[in-house]
Amino acid sequence: MADWDPIAKVYDPLKAGSIDGTDVEPHDRAVWRAMSATYKPNKAVVGDPLLTLFVARLNPQTTEEKLHQVFSKYGDIQRLRLVRDLVTGFSKGYAFIEYKEERSVSRARREANKLVVDQHEVFVDFEQERTLRGWVPRRMGGGLGGKKESGQLRFGGRDRPFRKPINVGMEERRGWDRGRDRQDWGRHREDEKNNN
């Protein structure tokens, strides 16, 4: 318990699917998919992963120019990639921004999170694909965050950190067992009354 951290240091789909990281069985099919997935980071992605930010929840109308305008105030941008659908060319609502300096990345992550861009509050965090060991993307059942409506929330990230698990001590466990014994004894007495 001393080494507990609300942010995952290594990605484990089973833990990410649990609000406190203590689940022993997957609760949805996506977690099963992520556990059996063999994912390797995209080799076509260039740039330094430690200088790259992930920007999500973008307005579908937001352009590369608008992102460059908004995020260049935190430092010099090396590369900016707005992820688009290969067939339609429409924005998928997220982008990767690589800065030239580490202090620019830290500042942008700290100050740009929850910034409103084109009427949408954006989410900003470090890139996970190449920096978090064991990473499995959302399309394969992994990822972090998610929407409540989908029933597939993922925890352990900045957006939705793990909650500290409840540590059940021996005294509490003994009291619970005694309480259960009392319940069983009470049920036994009820059964005797009903049978007589």
Results as ranks from 00 to 15, higher is better:
123 F>W: 09
123 F>M: 10
124 V>A: 02
124 V>T: 04
125 D>C: 11
125 D>W: 05
125 D>P: 00
125 D>T: 11
126 F>T: 12
126 F>H: 11
126 F>Y: 15
126 F>E: 13
127 E>W: 04
127 E>D: 08
128 Q>C: 04
128 Q>W: 12
128 Q>F: 10
129 E>V: 12
129 E>L: 10
129 E>C: 09
130 R>M: 05
130 R>D: 00
130 R>K: 14
130 R>Q: 13
131 T>L: 02
131 T>V: 11
131 T>C: 05
132 L>F: 09
133 R>Q: 13
133 R>S: 13
133 R>V: 09
134 G>P: 06
134 G>M: 11
135 W>S: 04
135 W>M: 11
135 W>D: 09
135 W>E: 12
136 V>G: 07
136 V>Y: 06
136 V>T: 09
136 V>F: 01
137 P>D: 01
137 P>L: 04
137 P>H: 06
137 P>Q: 00
138 R>A: 14
138 R>W: 09
138 R>Q: 13
139 R>H: 12
140 M>T: 02
140 M>Q: 15
140 M>A: 12
140 M>C: 08
140 M>H: 14
140 M>S: 07
141 G>A: 03
141 G>I: 01
142 G>S: 07
143 G>P: 09
143 G>V: 04
143 G>N: 06
144 L>M: 05
144 L>V: 04
144 L>S: 01
145 G>C: 06
145 G>H: 01
146 G>E: 01
146 G>Q: 03
146 G>S: 05
147 K>H: 11
147 K>N: 12
147 K>G: 00
148 K>T: 04
148 K>P: 00
149 E>H: 02
149 E>F: 01
149 E>R: 10
149 E>V: 09
149 E>P: 00
150 S>T: 15
150 S>H: 15
150 S>Y: 12
150 S>V: 06
150 S>I: 09
151 G>C: 08
151 G>N: 13
151 G>S: 11
151 G>Q: 05
152 Q>S: 06
152 Q>A: 13
152 Q>H: 14
152 Q>L: 12
152 Q>K: 15
153 L>G: 07
153 L>V: 00
153 L>C: 04
153 L>I: 05
154 R>F: 10
154 R>P: 04
154 R>H: 03
154 R>E: 00
154 R>G: 03
156 G>L: 08
156 G>M: 12
156 G>H: 03
156 G>P: 01
157 G>F: 03
157 G>N: 07
157 G>L: 01
157 G>M: 07
158 R>F: 11
158 R>V: 15
158 R>I: 14
159 D>M: 10
160 R>F: 09
160 R>E: 01
160 R>Q: 10
161 P>I: 02
161 P>L: 03
163 R>I: 00
163 R>C: 07
163 R>Y: 04
163 R>N: 10
163 R>G: 07
164 K>I: 06
164 K>V: 05
164 K>N: 02
165 P>L: 13
165 P>H: 11
165 P>Q: 10
165 P>E: 15
165 P>N: 14
166 I>S: 06
166 I>D: 13
168 V>C: 12
168 V>D: 01
168 V>Q: 12
170 M>N: 05
170 M>V: 07
171 E>G: 09
171 E>S: 13
171 E>V: 14
171 E>A: 14
171 E>L: 15
172 E>I: 06
172 E>R: 15
172 E>A: 13
173 R>W: 14
